[in-house]
Write a protein that binds this DNA or RNA. Structure first.
Lengths: 208, 208
DNA sequence: TTTGCCATCACCCAAATGGGCGATACTCTG
DNA sequence: CAGAGTATCGCCCATTTGGGTGATGGCAAA
């Protein structure tokens, strides 16, 4: 039985990672790397031109986030199959990726056989997450859950804005800002706004 | 004229990076990868056993930081030549690496020819930094300069400690803590303690 | 030696912060 | 429909924060 190889597009700005992925896949006779992109623009362009079966997408690209690129590609081509390969491994990151339409998520720390497994899974039509990420995602949905407004406020706090300034920027009363802050600090288990920033960065809420 | 190949040890916990580096070096006939380590322990052990000419060391390893491993290897063998290959690219990171005895520092985002160039340079006995890192290092020493005490205070601020608590922990008067905070915020250009945390994390003062 | 930086502490004071309690209104889900 | 979560605002109040100024002693470089 002859099967066509799985055609793969690699998106990553790090030359070393691209080489590593190519190396990892070169052992698999049924997989073929058909293209490489080093930023979001190239990724969108090449995806349209090559129509790969699978796209391996880095989480952080020079121009935009991998998740945004994923969303944009999925909007244009809802049958695309994209696997995020990212350094970030928090439940929040995974949630965002899946919400944007990714079919899989593997940490960059994975061994090559995990990548290969993920590609086979996704090519076959199944979503793929490593067990650890699956757990993080579950915790994510129950334990941590900042509302949009709370994240907005937190971002401004991280930039050193005072409550009054935040109120002005978001067109709110500063009492409301205080309420949001009280809530988000409680949710994060933070002692004060500085601690909230630390925890939020650790947990991946604040992308720079 | 026959020259012996440059014997290289690769230290990185990411399988993909190891593969990428091997791929990058496989094109160079005068370089030979003689070993791979995936954590600090293995690195120290393998370095002693193999005595490589060059060690490519990841900045972040599962057990300890690459910089610490570098320091430990250099203490045992002051002729070792270690090149840090790290995601972190701030002047502060580079400063720490060189201070620990590293002979070079290249960002993980480098193209393969940069790595190869770095290896040749260092093997020939010259220190190697990419021009951008060289600049960052220079700025580092002039512009940003938190004192030890200030960094200590900042670390505790990031953990959500109030001035009074910090004073207790460091055995100081809380007025002194306030003074340190005033100074470090001025140096960082921060509006308040939360902003200081953001800036410090961005600039690599706060390693987790 | 003078100058600068660090570390330490003190006092004053206005402004910001954080907690608690309560209230309204909207949306979504069971 | 009831309940939960979100978003909005208000008030009270103790505590914290941040800025300013000033002072001492140590240490290192110019």
């Amino acid at each position: 039985m002859i099967t066509r190889p799985i055609r793969i597009l690699i998106v990553d700005d790090h030359a070393m990672i691209r080489l590593g992925l190519i190396g990892a896949l070169s052992c698999e006779p049924d997989m073929e790397v058909v293209g490489q992109a080093r930023n979001g623009c190239e990724a969108i362009e090449l995806h349209a031109k090559l129509a790969p079966d699978i796209t391996l997408m880095d989480g952080i690209l020079p121009d935009r986030h991998g998740v945004e690129i994923t969303r944009e590609i999925m909007e244009k081509n809802s049958t695309a199959k994209i696997i995020l390969v990212s350094i970030n491994e928090t439940g929040e990151d995974v949630r965002r990726a899946l919400e944007a339409g990714a079919s899989g998520y593997v940490p960059k720390s994975s061994e090559q056989d995990i990548i290969v497994e993920a590609i086979r899974c996704v090519a076959a039509g199944t979503k793929f997450l490593t067990p650890i990420l699956r757990n993080r995602l579950d915790e994510q949905n129950t334990i941590v859950g900042l509302s949009n407004r709370e994240v907005q406020v937190l971002r401004l706090v991280a930039k050193g804005k005072a409550n009054k300034e935040i109120a002005a920027i978001l067109a709110l009363s500063s009492d409301t800002v205080k309420t949001h802050l009280t809530h988000l600090m409680r949710k994060l288990g933070a002692a004060d706004r500085a601690h909230a920033v630390t925890l939020a960065i650790e947990q991946g809420f604040l992308r720079m």
